[in-house]
């Protein structure tokens, strides 16, 4: 089989482009599934009584590596499978609880082709609930520069994340 065509190529983009929003209703299951998938057994991510009494929060809350996985899903939903993440920076400001509807929004902040010919997209992403930003993520993602390019084929000196 031949490789699938890229969903998105570098030349399609302009700085300031807006990514489609992602809305997700967070349930206790969302929190617990993500905590266990990331092997985070700490009780504030599955035991509501513990979270209330020991953390002083109103409920269990999303753990950081689970949020990272949500950001990754948000980015690659947009890029398709050719999109290869190079670098991400997270800042967690506030917690996300069951009952919250989390909304991920993103904007293309930077476009650059490096000296190896790799096309890099800078993204500024926010995770918010009721308009309040709970976490931010800046990402640097490689996209194909044309239909024949594949960032996953880069390594060593040709991969400068």
């Amino acid at each position: 089989m031949s490789a699938p065509a890229p969903v998105l190529v570098f030349g399609d983009l302009a700085e300031g482009d807006i990514l489609p929003s992602l809305h997700h209703d967070v349930s206790a299951t969302t929190v617990v599934l993500g905590a266990l998938a990331t092997r985070d057994w700490r009780p504030m991510h599955h035991d509501k009584d513990f979270a209330l009494e020991r953390n002083g929060t109103r409920d269990i809350f999303l753990n950081t590596p689970n949020q990272a996985a949500w950001f990754e899903r948000y980015i690659t939903d947009w890029t398709g499978p050719h999109g290869r993440m190079g670098r991400v920076t997270f800042r967690m400001r506030d917690s996300v609880f069951p009952g919250d509807t989390m909304v991920l929004d993103g904007v293309v902040s930077e476009l650059a082709v490096d000296d190896t010919g790799c096309g890099w997209v800078g993204l500024d992403i926010t995770l918010s609930v009721d308009g309040d930003v709970k976490s931010t993520c800046t990402a640097r993602v490689a996209l194909p520069v044309d239909d024949d390019d594949n960032p996953w084929h880069r390594s060593a000196d040709r991969w400068k994340p």
């Binding site: 993500g34 689970n66 949500w70 990754e72 899903r73 690659t76």
Partner: peptide
Amino acid sequence: YVWTMCAAVENGNP
């Protein structure tokens, strides 16, 4: 674990 993680965040990346 990869599938459990993808299922937890509904990541359908092929």
